[in-house]
Design a protein around this nucleic acid. Structure first.
Lengths: 213, 213
DNA sequence: ATGCGGTTGTGACAATTATCACAAACAATG
DNA sequence: CATTGTTTGTGATAATTGTCACAACCGCAT
């Protein structure tokens, strides 16, 4: 995709007004990230706020012993709340962000943050909205791992995949197990059950979601 | 405690400047909440942003079947990020907030939010900082329940109690089990182990933390 | 076709946590 | 001091999840 102009930005980010979009257009750097590429990984300083224009980014939490746990997707119109958080303190992150398809992002260098904040109330609203959404999403994640068993958690995980990338989920059982911090065998068995209940159909390297949503 | 003046407010909320403190002093309503009182419960609309001046507030997440899961404490100088989130949408909350000791709060009615935001950059910084802190805290909560076993989670839970209210933790095993979404017997057994390792001493209705922090 | 690497299926077993049942210890009260 | 309600201790057992071992299967390259 070619560089977006201000009008297109407003279409993707409805909370932006035109002056803000103009500012971001001139000072932000649009970049293409290939599927599989890592946008953010632990131990990295983060010098940009990141806006997703196109594509999908998967966000993981990293455990001390290298475990990973899938938190949520970023989609067009979203911003990486984490990138803003880390920036605020110029901290190293304990988060991994990976593009799951070819993805267009706009990167806004730290030094523009204060200007944006004090100049554009629309930017401020956007940031608040971003935090609010991510916060709520984290709460639902906590609900799941605190209150639910693996079968329900797996189902919820698949639903989110479907919402983000459609009814055909091209992941191996191993990858899924990894994402929900379980083991391949457990996932295989639970998927078998779901297949019996006609919730999904299984193929090699893929799962097809049957049913609503 | 008697109503705080602007200067005292700045002492408790270091990010405030004097004009902001004045504004909050005149438009906010200071209130005393007794230990055990519920500040926020599911299914309630929230008409105020809440600032903690004194005391401690415990925040729980509510599960669908009435389970509860302790998330974090709010302490003097903190604001309830949730109260702001819910307000933004005037949504009903799925959160419980309970005072664990006599607590002083300042309640700022919704209608002042926009004014505060557009008038005081210090308020804006405070809100961002509040979100950032709570966000990070939620991430560590996720780490615990995603990656750790009960023994480690219990230890972490106790450490947080200690940090919030001192080395003597006056809770029953039942209450602790409730907070970490486990069962009383499990907690009792794990506490026994910790006692053997001299990490804690046990009394009726209380646990005394031995060791750093 | 053969072999190889990665994926999936499955049984047996281990570890962790939850549940049940019941006893003992303790505090408060009359 | 006897009773009552709450708290804590503990064994037995169940349920859930994780681990190990190994077979079957699929696609691909040689």
């Amino acid at each position: 995709m070619t560089q977006m102009d201000a009008k297109e930005l407003v279409r993707v980010f409805p909370l932006f007004d035109l002056p803000l979009a103009e500012y971001i257009h001139t000072h932000g750097e649009q970049r293409t990230v290939e599927s599989g590429e890592i946008l953010m990984k632990p131990g990295q300083y983060f010098k940009y706020a990141m806006l997703i224009v196109n594509g999908t980014v998967k966000l993981y939490r990293e455990g001390e012993d290298g475990e990973e746990f899938f938190m949520y997707f970023l989609e067009p119109g979203d911003a990486c709340a984490l990138s803003m958080l880390c920036m605020a303190r110029s901290q190293t992150s304990t988060i991994m962000a990976v593009a799951t398809e070819d993805t267009e992002v706009i990167m806004i260098p730290i030094q523009h943050m204060d200007v944006l904040m004090s100049t554009f109330t629309s930017w401020y609203h956007f940031v608040i909205e971003t935090y609010r959404n991510r916060f709520e999403e984290l709460l639902t994640v906590i609900d799941q791992i605190a209150f639910k068993n693996m079968d329900e958690r797996l189902e919820w995980y698949l639903q989110r995949q479907v919402k983000a990338s459609g009814k055909t989920i091209t992941l191996t059982h191993q990858q899924i197990a990894h994402d929900i911090n379980s083991s391949r065998e457990v996932v295989s068995r639970l998927l078998k059950k779901m297949e019996k209940n006609n919730l999904i159909a299984m193929e090699r390297n893929a799962i097809i979601w049957r049913g609503a949503e």
